[in-house]
Design a protein around this nucleic acid. Structure first.
Lengths: 230, 230
DNA sequence: CAGTGGTCTAGACCACCAG
DNA sequence: TGGTGGTCTAGACCACTGA
């Protein structure tokens, strides 16, 4: 703990903040002072403080100095893994079943969500993901065929659409929404649950610059929860 | 864009990855090579690459070098704001109503969740958060009185419990769970919705080292979704 | 055991902005 | 306008680990 690396120093300072050495809103010593106190270079202190700022514990401004945030804006991070990995990490045996697969002209809401030209064709895919043979999540996916031509012939009985796309089609950005929805006919049947059951739902849309690739809605089985730490 | 700062270089490299210059799984040039190519010091390249690794785009190992991840493990980040700020940021007028407030001996599941001694006392609080007078979320909170003695007299009609705790009681760590649940009697009434409606739910437990402070369950009104970008 | 990334240093200059 | 944080540099040493 008396080491002079940026991690030790960061955690030491974090401790002094949570111990209340500097009250919320109070000014902290400047980088130069802290560097002297810890016997390290200002660069190292800077690195420690930048991380604390990123974590939402402190606020930094040029000229104004560093102060403890009045209201710590802690941030939660989620890795969004491939479903197969998520299931296997939990000790389950992964399998999947394609329940529906069809290419068609994009309906209006998909056309607008994927910024498609009128009449553009898309692949629609319903997949049930299973853990140890039990339904785990139901996926309703739309793929822009123009963005991923190979998708029409991809062997989705062997590799899941998500995994195939992630490997074959690069993407630069994405949008994610978490919500709760009531199971409809299709979801209830796929997940072997009752109509109206509350399902934790993740909707994702991904694109590469101007080219929208896919949008997907993933409904998890009842009782599922997503966990992280602050 | 031809600047030699770590951000430009990071984004330039990110572009070369999404453009497929290096295939998934392929080795990338070493830091020294990239530094020469971009005409900057190795330190700057290192900083750019560390960020890309944190973003899950590349994998780095000593001796083995840097390679593009086979499956990019993009990570989503959420700031978890004070509910009042969330509502105000959306343009609503925030208000809250304490529906229930009582100190009592902790029931078993709370005693275990907050690591309490047998017979420890807790404050239980039901709060309805409103936006423009409409129910926005329902909060069921338990506070360890030993960890926050002032809580029994705190003016929760003026300041929300979350905000009060964040200001008054420092915490070091937390645990967050997202899920979907069906509205029970209490939630349905508080949120003016129907029994069984699917509610997006956030459960949080926070502690300071060994001292567990509070655990809370926040049920959002139907239709709520939490959004972020990848 | 050699080569990669991880880190620290001392010094320098700059951008910003509160006083 | 002066003091703060933001950043870059060149050089150095170290830790790790794959060949």
């Amino acid at each position: 703990m008396n080491e002079r690396n940026h991690i030790s120093i960061r955690e030491a300072i974090r401790g002094r903040i949570t111990d209340g050495e500097w009250a919320p809103g109070a000014m902290m010593p400047g980088e130069t002072d802290l560097a002297e106190e810890y016997g390290c270079s200002r660069t190292t202190v800077n690195r420690a403080l930048q991380k604390l700022a990123e974590d939402g514990l402190i606020e930094r401004k040029r000229r104004a100095g560093t102060r403890v945030r009045e209201i710590p804006s802690r941030q939660a991070k989620f890795r969004i893994p491939i479903l197969r990995h998520e299931i296997e990490a939990a000790g389950g045996a992964y399998s999947s079943r394609v329940a529906f697969r069809e290419t068609l002209k994009a309906p209006g809401f998909i056309q607008s969500r994927l910024r498609l030209a009128t009449g553009a064709r898309v692949l629609r895919l319903h997949t049930v993901h299973l853990s140890d043979g039990q339904p785990y999540a139901f996926e309703d996916r739309w793929v822009n065929i123009k963005a991923a031509p190979g998708v029409v012939d991809a062997p989705f009985d062997i590799i899941s659409a998500n995994e195939w796309l992630v490997r074959e089609v690069p993407y630069s950005s994405g949008d994610v929404r978490f919500s709760a929805m009531a199971a409809g006919q299709i979801e209830a049947q796929a997940l072997a649950t009752s109509l109206g059951a509350p399902l934790f739902t993740v909707e994702r849309t991904t694109w590469l610059r101007d080219l929208y690739i896919t949008t997907t809605k993933l409904c998890y089985r009842p009782g599922y929860h997503m966990r992280t730490e602050l």
